[in-house]
Every structure is written in C-alpha cells, then in structure tokens.
Amino acid sequence: MSLDRKSNTPLYLQLKNLIIEKIRNGELKPGSFMQTEDELCREYGISRYPVRQALGELVDEGYLQRTRGKGTIVNPELPTQKRETKKQVLGLVLTNLIHDFPADILSGFEKEARKRGYLTVACCSEGDPEEELRCIDMIAELEASGLVVFPCNESRISDRLDSLREKNIYLGIIDRNPGLNEVDYTGSDNIGGAYTAVRHLAMHGFYNVVFVSDMSNVSSVNERMEGYIKAVGDFGLNPLTHISINEDLTKYYHYKHRFFIEKIKDELSELKKSLPVGIFAINDGVALHCMEVLKSEGLVIGKDIGIIGFDNIPEGKNSDVQLTTVAQNGLLLGQTAADIAISKIEGKTAQVYRSIIPTQLIIRSSCGEGM
C-alpha cells in the first residue's frame, strides 16, 4: 500500500490510518515491533515529520507502545475505548517551511496542541493567496475545531470569515496581521526589534543610517519601519536615505534576493561618501546581499559599514562576516497561538487577543562584536 500525494488528506493521517488497518487485519500483531522512523520514511518516501506525527498519535491513542531502549511495539492490549477515541483537530496554515522560523512555529504549535489533546494538521500556501484559501477549505473539510493562519501577502482570509463562523471553526492569525481586528493575533515585537537594532547602530558610532526594504505591504514590514523611524528620532540620527527595492520580496526566498539587490547597487555605492554608515535591513537575506555589494566596493563591514538584519537565518551566522540580527522566537509564537486557539475553542475566554512576543538582538561581527 502507498500514500496518495494528490489527496487532500495529510500524509501523516494517511500513514496513521494505514498502520491502524494493518493492526486490525492482523498484519501487525500485538506485541510485534514497529518499523523505525527511518525505515518508514524510506518505505513511503516521506520526511520524518509526518512519520513522527503519525507514530506519536498512535501511541497517544493506545495502538502503539514505546519501550525504553528497545523501540516501538504494537500494544499487546488494544482498549476499544482508546482505539475509537476521536481527538479534535487544530489546523495551521504557513507560507512555507524553507527556513527555521516557520518550522519553529509549527514545532511550537504542534507541541502545545498535543499537550492539550489536539491533533495538528499543517498546510503550506507557498505564498499564493488562492492556495491559502484551498488550505483553509481543506482543514475545514476535516471538521477541524479551529485553525491559525500565517497570512501570505495579498491574503484573502477575510473571504472565509463568514463560512468559518457558520461552521463554528475558530480562526487565529500569526506573524502578519492583515487588518482583521476581530481575530486573535500572535506576532513578534517588530517595532521593538527594529528600535533595538537602530539603537545598537548608534551605540557603535553609526550616526548616519539607512533603511533598506522592499515594496511589500505586510504588517511585519511596516512595523519594522515604524521602529526604525522612532529610533532615528529618539537618538538624533541622520537618516541618509531609505533605499527601497522595487519589488515585493515576501514572494521570494532569501537566496533569490541577490537579483534584486543588484538593482540598488549604485545607491549602495553612494554610501561611501558618508562613512561610517549604519544599515538596518528589512531581513537577513537583504542584509547579506547588501554586505556582498559593499565588500566588493572595498568597504570594511563592521568598521566602515555597520549592518543589522532581521530573522536570524543560518546563513547569517555562517557568513564570513557574521551578521548581527534580530531573532524571533518561532517556538513561543507557535505555542502561544495554539494556547489561545484551544482556550477559545474550549470556551475558557471570550476576549480578543493581541499577543506580542519579544525579539532578541544577536550581536555578531557586522556590528558590535569585537569592535
């Protein structure tokens, strides 16, 4: 038997049902050892996450038992009550799982949901508004108790508000707020993170400052701009210019930003006339490619140019000049969003939440470390 990748049923749920069927028809006998996670990954051609989720739920529901130092076995006793228990489903729609941040959100969300007795179904929109709606519809068809959405740019979540209410399905928003004030929101402190970054530039003598951003119109980008402007005013800095890339970079992964940075190469080169200059970039991908351009101009990063990004992607730490950046706590974001969702579903609270999770400045050699 194989898994159907074209089905709307998540892969982990297909695998879980397949294992249950093997137990019921006697192919997997009580007390026998299950295949390892690696063996299941190879047999069904899927990643470790859906395998781990399927096995975890089968343990929770009494089909399997984990034995310390030996492995996972089919439960010698399969209580009917446990086997037929139906857990509530909680959905999570993300834009992608390419980077650590959304993956951390998923991990924190799933951990909190499982602790509270809920199953997690995750779906990725790949930044496509139409695909985002399809993900929402798929989760709703699974009779989920609720879902939380990481909106893509140009999100059309509002198109589903009425239908979700009619089905009594909870809706929450994470990371970006598309202006749905009546919906619970969990996000990072983008304003505070940007403010702290610009203050750090000022503390290290970079009084001429530049903000490098794109043309996206999502709340997280606008909030970082707000924090930058506030810090510039509070610390009496000289904002040389706002370099704006004429493109919405939220549509692209960080490794594709290089192409768009080339379009502002001349503007970056002009900064040589005003050294030293501090740069606050909208994200790490933009910051890293700006560093490449500036180094090619013979400028010393950390001395002539101080530069700070946002997101704390692994490439920033692994760069030859390690990038100072603002880190978001994806795990806590996911846990908080799931906690709020479940509390609402179970009727423990009726208030509308706006939960802001603190960020952390990670100091490295592009500004501050070793200066």
Rank of each mutant, 00 (worst) to 15 (best):
M1T: 09
L3A: 01
N8L: 00
P10M: 00
L13W: 07
I19T: 07
E27F: 06
L28S: 13
G31E: 02
Y44C: 04
S47E: 04
R52Y: 13
L55F: 09
V59Q: 11
E61K: 15
Q65K: 15
V74E: 06
E77G: 06
L78N: 13
T80I: 13
K82N: 14
Q88E: 12
Q88V: 04
V89F: 01
G91L: 04
T95C: 12
L97E: 05
D104W: 06
I105M: 03
E112N: 09
G117I: 05
Y118P: 13
L119F: 12
T120F: 04
C123L: 08
E130Q: 14
E131V: 08
L142M: 02
A144D: 00
A144P: 12
C152M: 07
C152P: 14
S155W: 02
I157Y: 05
N168L: 01
N168Y: 01
I169R: 02
N177A: 04
P178T: 06
P178Y: 07
G179L: 01
E182H: 15
T186E: 01
T186R: 12
N190W: 04
A194H: 09
A194L: 03
H204N: 14
F211G: 07
D214T: 08
S219W: 05
V221G: 10
K251A: 06
F259Q: 14
I264T: 08
D266M: 05
D266H: 10
L271G: 03
K273G: 07
G278I: 03
I282Y: 10
I282C: 12
I282M: 15
S296L: 10
I301C: 02
G302Y: 00
F310W: 04
D311H: 09
D311A: 03
I313K: 12
P314A: 02
N318W: 10
N318S: 13
S319I: 00
A337T: 14
A341C: 10
K344M: 08
I345K: 11
T349G: 05
Q351I: 06
Y353V: 03
I356E: 01
I357H: 07
L361A: 11
S366Y: 05
M371C: 14
